[in-house]
Nucleic acid binder design. Structure first.
Length: 572
RNA sequence: GAUUCGCUAGCUCAGUAGGUAGAGCACAUCCCUUUUAAGGAUGGGGUCCUGGGUUCGAAUCCCAGGCGGAUCACCA
């Protein structure tokens, strides 16, 4: 953050001070009552020109076209943009024209938030416009806003730098209005899902985010510390084990939209914090859950798009039920022609090599199968497809398959080449569950830092008896990406995680004064390449003296040139 | 983590045999009573990401670093 202001920022600060001196509060406290939105006017006025003859509306100035005693301004509120028409003699009915000539024309800027009163009409150019009778500043903007222009859907000078858009999402939302639609759709997606689950009678619950043990997924956690208890706590990586405890406790259906945290890499599909919806329903199995997922996601597509078909990149994806269902073996056979269902580990290893899966010698049968699937099938599954019956080794919380040894009752929905959700008939046999945890502990001892830890309290809960239960985890961010046609998770998160902004080292006024440097010279010293007192002290006094002379001229500083000895004392 | 591309005015971007840094919009001043990506004229504005090196001279070439994008790897 530079302490120095740009020319335009200085001008705006001066404008603000001038407003103050004219008795205009740039940040008034009192409410400004709004009785209409832009969107309402644009929708309803064309059908009835008697409407909106006494309106009060507020928003941000986005463009200004000043034509002498008449001006056109584009005002943006939360619903859209509308043109307003300001005529000098309307807002300045008396002899004093300063409200228009000075306050509006000189002291207002693009980005300022204003309130206007007036009536709606249509200009000669045929544009719906507000004829302003009163104008009031509601908030002065001190930073120049990027000015994005648009014609026929084409943008000019778009504010497009991804880094700045994510770091300053507020600016992105102001000038790239279409961004708002993505986030509105995301919220509608969540609301649709919530309504769907509520209507089925399931209970929305909240479970701990700070957990003494992390579980329910294979991932590295964020670790923190509680001072009073003097204990390590983890940010949850999933909420599965807590929701199952609630099923043990006697709820038939519970769900939670949960922010989960995983201490892993970041890319366009991964953010360290992300949102999942997890659902657990007693007395159901994974077949039932597949039907439920289909129904829920189809409903979301209909709610957001009015159709089951959604354009995602170059693919048109149709969420209409029923979705294709493949077992994992069938999917592999479908794409390779090879049936691996009866093969032993050595044979499967050969298949994995043949299809070019990335494998290593530590991989067991289950992992090999998963790699084959990930190589030959998953990327090609564009239309929503259920993949069922996974190897037991990779699913320590899923129930063993009722009829297929070595497999578990688990499915994932795959769509656009990516996993959408994960679900199983939940393992409720406490003896089996303990053995699976112990197998995970073995993996951990062999160095797998994402293996699960053993949760004794969870096992105790299972020992009291959990009904047969179907469970589901569905990635809300990923689903939002598909439903809004975004290629990066950063585009469906308001504030994606970023590395901290580089802080430019700054010499403070106090530091410089402590060196005996007169205040008038401080701007010049800021312009030098010395950014710390230490660097300053090591500077060559003669070079520094010469630099100051040059800067004095360049900055037109009205301060006397010091002697070389004085400058040397500043550096001591 | 690897590869690769990028970083120049408030915004979007030009800019090489290495020789005082440019455009459009934005901003300022003046003119203008219905304009619409921008009405006209004039003008101001830069740590060319940072640090080092090569050179008489670096936005430009070399090295290191920072931040970001893309691809890959890792990853319930």
């Amino acid at each position: 953050m530079s302490l120095e202001l740009s020319e335009q920022e200085i001008i705006r600060r001066n404008s603000m001070n001038e407003l103050l001196s004219k008795g205009i509060n740039p940040y008034p406290a009192e409410a400004f009552n709004v009785n209409v939105t832009v969107n309402e006017i644009l929708e309803k006025y064309p059908t009835d020109h008697t409407l909106y003859q006494e309106i009060s509306i507020a928003g941000r100035i986005m463009t200004r076209r000043i034509m002498g005693a008449v001006s056109f301004v584009e005002l943006q509120d939360s619903t859209g943009r509308i043109q307003i028409y300001i005529k000098r003699d309307d807002i300045c009915p008396t002899e004093d024209k300063s409200m228009y000539n000075i306050v509006f024309k000189r002291l207002f800027d693009i980005g300022d938030i204003i309130g206007v009163k007036g009536f709606v009409f249509i200009t000669q150019m045929g544009e719906i416009t507000i004829h302003v009778k009163e104008l009031k500043l509601l908030s002065k903007s001190l930073k120049p806003l990027p000015v994005v222009k648009e014609k026929d859907g084409e943008q000019f000078d778009a504010f497009s730098d991804a880094e700045q858009r994510y770091r300053m999402r507020y600016v992105d939302l102001i000038v790239n209005n279409q961004i708002k639609d993505v986030f509105k759709k995301r919220t509608r997606l969540v609301n649709t899902m919530r309504n769907f689950l509520d209507e089925k009678g399931y209970l929305e619950v909240e479970t701990p985010i700070l957990q003494p043990l992390y579980g329910g997924a294979a991932a590295r956690p964020f670790k923190t510390h509680h001072n009073s208890l003097d204990m390590t706590l983890y940010m949850r990586i999933a909420n599965e084990l807590y929701l199952k405890r609630l099923i043990v406790g006697g709820f038939d259906g519970v769900y939670e939209f949960s922010k989960d945290f995983r201490n892993e890499g970041m890319d366009r599909f991964h953010n360290p914090e992300f949102t999942q919806m997890e659902l657990y329903v007693a007395y159901k199995d994974y077949n039932w859950m597949m039907d439920t997922v289909e129904e829920m996601v189809e409903q979301i597509a209909l709610e957001l798009h009015g159709t089951t078909q959604v354009q995602v990149g170059s693919n048109l994806i149709d969420f209409k039920r029923p979705w294709k269902r493949f077992t994992m073996y069938e999917a592999i056979e479908h794409y390779t022609g090879i049936d691996i269902s009866q093969m032993d580990e050595a044979q499967i290893h050969k298949v994995a090599e043949k299809v070019g899966a990335e494998i290593d010698e530590t991989m067991g049968k289950g992992k090999l199968i998963d790699e084959i699937f990930g190589t030959v099938a998953e990327p090609y599954l564009i239309q929503p497809t259920f993949i069922t019956d996974y190897p037991v080794e990779m699913s320590p919380l899923a129930k063993k398959h009722r009829s297929k040894p070595g497999l578990v009752e688990r499915f994932e929905a795959v769509c656009n080449g990516k996993e959408l959700c994960n679900s199983f008939s939940e393992l409720n046999d406490p003896i089996d569950q303990r053995q699976r945890f112990e197998a995970q502990l073995d993996l951990g001892r062999r160095g797998d830092d994402e293996s699960m830890v053993l949760d004794e309290d969870f096992l105790r809960a299972l020992e009291y008896g959990m009904p047969p239960t179907a469970g589901l985890g569905i990635g809300i961010d990923r689903l939002a990406m598909i439903m809004t046609n975004q290629t990066s998770i950063q585009d469906v998160l308001f504030f994606p995680q970023m590395r901290p902004e580089k802080k430019a080292a700054e010499l403070t006024d106090a530091d410089l004064k402590a060196q005996g440097i007169p205040e008038g010279w401080i701007p010049a010293i800021r312009k030098t390449s010395y950014k710390t007192i230490e660097a300053l002290k090591e500077a060559n006094p003669n070079k520094f003296y010469n630099d100051l002379g040059g800067l004095r001229k360049k900055l037109k500083l009205d301060v006397p040139m010091p002697t070389l000895d004085e400058v040397k004392s500043w550096l001591s």
